[in-house]
């Protein structure tokens, strides 16, 4: 029972967002609500690495890109194979989309392992350098990819391996079916939060925190630090990959390498830092806030970046540990006066 109830809660909340909230607010704010869910997934998953284990990854958008492109290849070229064109399908299309999301997450996790293993064996800032390099290499490679195939015959000829490089280059992957629904976003987002939460509250997850606090002492306690750091990194990459696939299939989004470059990685880092390194609720709130803020400031477009930067400086000066520090929203009530 204990483990089923939260999953049910996630499904109910996702259903409410899907059936009531998004239709009520209209397409523009509906897209903002989708973006909040996707960004919350990215921030919470990055927090598992940066917040829990105290490593510093600044290439999270790279995993998002992998998930996005893998998901898009599966739904776009998969649709050609199954239905002869990339037009959206009904329920079976949704099924293909979910497969695409999960495959995107898994492939991103594999990349996470390959990128993480060598750099996480070392202590210090190597991870930051490696993840930065990874994101940039990936971006350049995607920019140099070939045009998207639009003819069934050409697709048939290129299958199965040839389509991997036909993802549109710098212009982006056009024609990806719009499958992303509020339900899908909030189910995956809810599951991400649930996994992160269970991790933080378990003894196993506390070992992640101990690495951040004092790596040497953690090792002396019997924590296999390298293994746990790699696991945290792979898990984060997995969720980022799913978030990327959700993003790739959003209405009005063209998947381009530029959008998922260093700037995006940094946006996610800012969400984590602002919300508090290690705080899940902080990440969610910061992700929501930093998604809404640019939209709210759109009418003064010229001043937008100034306000944005100013706000960050104020928060960092007045609350350098972020909104919640390592604690959670619900901790504030439980333990008043506890030092964050």
């Amino acid at each position: 029972m204990k483990s089923v109830a939260p999953v049910v809660a996630v499904l109910v909340i996702a259903a409410i967002v899907h059936v009531l909230l998004v239709p009520l607010v209209g397409p523009f704010y509906g897209k903002v609500i989708l973006d909040i869910g996707i960004n919350a997934m990215l921030a919470v998953s990055l927090n598992i690495v940066n917040g829990f284990t105290g490593q510093f990854s600044i290439g999270h958008a790279g995993f998002m890109a992998i998930g996005g492109y893998v998901g898009a290849i599966i739904t776009y070229y998969g649709s050609f194979v199954l239905w002869g064109s990339a037009m959206e399908q009904g329920a079976t299309g949704q099924l293909l989309f979910v497969v695409g999301c999960l495959a995107g997450g898994l492939i991103a996790a594999v990349f996470g392992y390959v990128v993480g293993l060598p750099s996480l064996r070392l202590r210090g800032d190597y991870l930051a350098i490696v993840t930065l390099g990874f994101g940039e290499i990936l971006r350049v490679m995607l920019q140099r990819s070939d045009d998207v195939l639009t003819e069934l015959a050409a697709v048939r000829e290129a299958l199965p391996v040839g389509v991997i490089t036909k993802v549109g280059g710098a212009l982006g992957f056009t024609g990806v079916p719009f499958y992303t629904t509020p339900l899908a976003v909030y189910v995956f987002c809810g599951l991400t939060i649930l996994v992160a939460y269970r991790l933080k509250e378990s003894t196993y997850g506390r070992a992640f925190l101990s690495i951040r606090e004092n790596e040497l002492a953690a090792e002396a306690m019997g924590v296999h630090t390298t293994r746990l750091k790699v696991r945290a990194f792979v898990l984060a990459a997995f969720f980022a990959g799913i978030a990327g696939a959700l993003y790739a299939h959003e209405v009005g989004v063209t998947l381009t390498p530029r959008e998922l470059g260093f700037q995006k990685s940094f946006d996610i880092v800012i969400m984590v830092v602002l919300g508090g390194m290690g705080s899940i609720s902080g990440s969610v709130i910061a992700a929501a806030f930093l998604t809404i803020l640019p939209e709210a400031l759109r009418s003064f477009a010229e001043y937008r970046l100034i306000v944005y930067a100013l706000l960050l400086i104020i928060v960092m000066l007045s609350r350098p540990q972020g909104l919640f520090g390592v604690r959670e929203l619900w901790d504030l009530k439980k333990r008043r006066g506890a030092v964050t």
Binding site: R206, S210, N214, L216, A218, A220
Partner: peptide
Amino acid sequence: HAPEGRGIFANL
């Protein structure tokens, strides 16, 4: 091993 400088996990 109780390491030198205590090595406690300060934020926990």
